[in-house]
Simulated assay, not measured.
Amino acid sequence: MARILLIEDDHAVRRGLALALDRHGHAVGEAGTGEEGLRALGGTRPDVIVLDLMLPGMDGFEVCRRIRAAGNLPIIMLTARGDDLDVVGGLEAGADDYVVKPVQPRVLDARVRAVLRRGAPTADGAPERHHDLTIDRAALAVTKGARQVSLTPTELRLLLELSRSPGQVLSRQQLLELVWEHDYLGDSRLVDNCVQRLRAKIEDEPSRPVFVQTVRGFGYRFGPV
Rank of each mutant, 00 (worst) to 15 (best):
M1V: 09
A2M: 05
R3L: 07
I7L: 03
D10A: 13
H11D: 04
A12Y: 11
R14A: 13
L19V: 07
L21D: 00
R23Q: 13
H26R: 08
G29P: 01
A31K: 01
G32F: 06
T33A: 08
T33D: 09
E36D: 15
E36V: 14
L41D: 12
G42M: 07
L51M: 07
D52S: 11
M54A: 14
P56T: 10
G57W: 08
R66W: 02
D86T: 04
V87A: 00
V87G: 00
V87M: 03
V87D: 00
V88Y: 02
G89H: 10
G89Y: 08
G89N: 13
A93I: 02
V100E: 06
K101G: 02
P102T: 07
Q104R: 14
L108P: 09
D109H: 14
R117I: 00
T122G: 09
A126F: 09
R129C: 00
H130Y: 15
H131L: 10
R137T: 11
V142M: 01
A146G: 15
L170M: 15
L170K: 14
Q174V: 01
L176P: 01
E177R: 12
Y184S: 11
L190C: 10
Q196C: 08
A200S: 15
D204Y: 10
P206E: 02
R208L: 15
F211D: 01
F211L: 06
F211W: 12
R216I: 11
F218M: 08
Y220S: 01
Y220K: 02
G223F: 03
